[in-house]
Every structure is written in structure tokens, then in C-alpha cells.
């Protein structure tokens, strides 16, 4: 009945596995983080899913600008909204994690500030879309802005934290990387979790885009 049921169920299965296994496995004993390292399986996956969604929307925006097909505009905007959703989940899980390791919900960390500002850029995308009435113009202008927003995302999450002098996040600004400290059992949970969340993100995106198309047909 449902098209592509196998990959959708694979995604759900991978996440379910990561949720159960993420709690059950033995984790290495690390200072400060201790058992909260398990949040890695949930928090980091949100950012991976968000990055994939924004990347997808970049691809569709470029496609829209080269072909002017309304279907690409639907995909681009829906994947931005979906990415915002996963980004907010990533912020929330990160804030809870920060409360228990760094002692505060919000710290003045380049990675955190970058994430906040790039989320703002994408929220501005939503505002921009709602402020233009004419359909073709809205699609074109928001596609142009979307490319700018992706550039900001890359600068904020990829470049600036690495340039910064100090960062609380592992792997940035002279801090040791957890990726090196990640032992084999943790990898066996972490990678499936990332893949699973990305698959489910695409599923949600597909559902949203199909819903938009249905609504358009009705109108």
C-alpha cells in the first residue's frame, strides 16, 4: 500500500535499535560527561538530520532557479521547515545536555551561537516566504535567500568554530575530539542512529511535500 515501505521501516528500525542499545551498552568512563555521553546518540543525530535537510533544500533551490518548476519550490521550502524542526530538537537536546555537563542551559560557545544565528537565518526564510504574495516571485526570491542561508550555515557550523580560540564542544578550537574517544561499541550504535534519523527525516519530508501537493491540487 505504501510506496517504499522497506526503507521507511529500515529507518524506524535503526532508530529503535539505537534508542534501546544506546541505553543498554557499556559506555567508556569519561570525566565531566560520564553517563550523559549517551545523549550523543540523540543530540548529534538531530544536527545530522538538520544538515541533510538544509542540504536537500539547497539542491532543490538550485534546481528551481535553473528550471522554474513549482514542484522544486515545494521540496525546497518543505525541507527548510523540516530542517528547522530538527534544528530546534537539536537545540533542546543540546541545552539539556549542557545543563548536566557545563552547568548551564546556554553557554557562550561559538558552536552554540553559530547554531542559534543560523537557525535565525532559516526562520527569516520562513518570514520572507510569508511576506511575498505572488507565487513565482516568492519561489525565486526565497530560493536566492536559501542559498545565502546555506552559506551562513556552513560558515557558522563549519568554519567559525574551528577558527575560535576556545570551544566547549569537542573537536573544535583545540578541544580533544570525542570521535577519537568513541570506542567500537559506541560507533556501532552511533552510525546506525545517524542513518536512521536521516532516513526518517526524508520520510517526514516526503509526507510534508505530498501533503502540500494534495492541497495545491484541491485549490
Amino acid at each position: 500500500m505504501i510506496k517504499g515501505l522497506w526503507w521507511k521501516l529500515t529507518g524506524l528500525g535503526l532508530i529503535l535499535y539505537s534508542i534501546v542499545a544506546g541505553q543498554m551498552i557499556e559506555v567508556p568512563e569519561l570525566p565531566v560527561i560520564h553517563e550523559t555521553i549517551r545523549n550523543l546518540f540523540y543530540h548529534v543525530c538531530m544536527w545530522f538530520a538538520m544538515f541533510t535537510m538544509f542540504g536537500t533544500s539547497l539542491v532543490y533551490s538550485i534546481k528551481y532557479l535553473t528550471g522554474n518548476k513549482p514542484k522544486n519550490d515545494i521540496m525546497a521550502s518543505e525541507s527548510v521547515y523540516n530542517g528547522i524542526f530538527f534544528g530546534i530538537l537539536g537545540l533542546i537536546t543540546g541545552m539539556i545536555w549542557a545543563k548536566f555537563t557545563w552547568g548551564d542551559f546556554w553557554t557562550n560557545d561559538p558552536q552554540l551561537n553559530g547554531a542559534a544565528v543560523s537557525m535565525m537565518a532559516y526562520l527569516a526564510y520562513a518570514v520572507l516566504r510569508s511576506s511575498i504574495d505572488e507565487k513565482a516571485m516568492r519561489a525565486r526570491v526565497s530560493a536566492v535567500y536559501n542559498i545565502f542561508a546555506f552559506m551562513l550555515l556552513v560558515i557558522f557550523l563549519g568554519v567559525l568554530p574551528r577558527l575560535a580560540d576556545s570551544s566547549l564542544h569537542p573537536g573544535k578550537g583545540g578541544n580533544s575530539s570525542t570521535m577519537q574517544g568513541l570506542d567500537l561499541t559506541m560507533r556501532l550504535v552511533f552510525y546506525p542512529a545517524v542513518i536512521g534519523w536521516i532516513i526518517v527525516a526524508f520520510w517526514v519530508l516526503q509526507i510534508r511535500a505530498r501533503k502540500r501537493r494534495l492541497l495545491q491540487n484541491v485549490n
Binding site: M1, I2, K3, V204, I207, L214
Partner: peptide, 11 residues
């Protein structure tokens, strides 16, 4: 998610 997907497929 599954139920929504099924509903949309039907429509």
C-alpha cells in the same frame, strides 16, 4: 507517521 503516509497515499 505510518498512518499519515497511508492516509495520504489513499487520497
Amino acid at each position: 507517521l505510518y498512518l499519515i503516509d497511508r492516509k495520504i497515499s489513499r487520497i
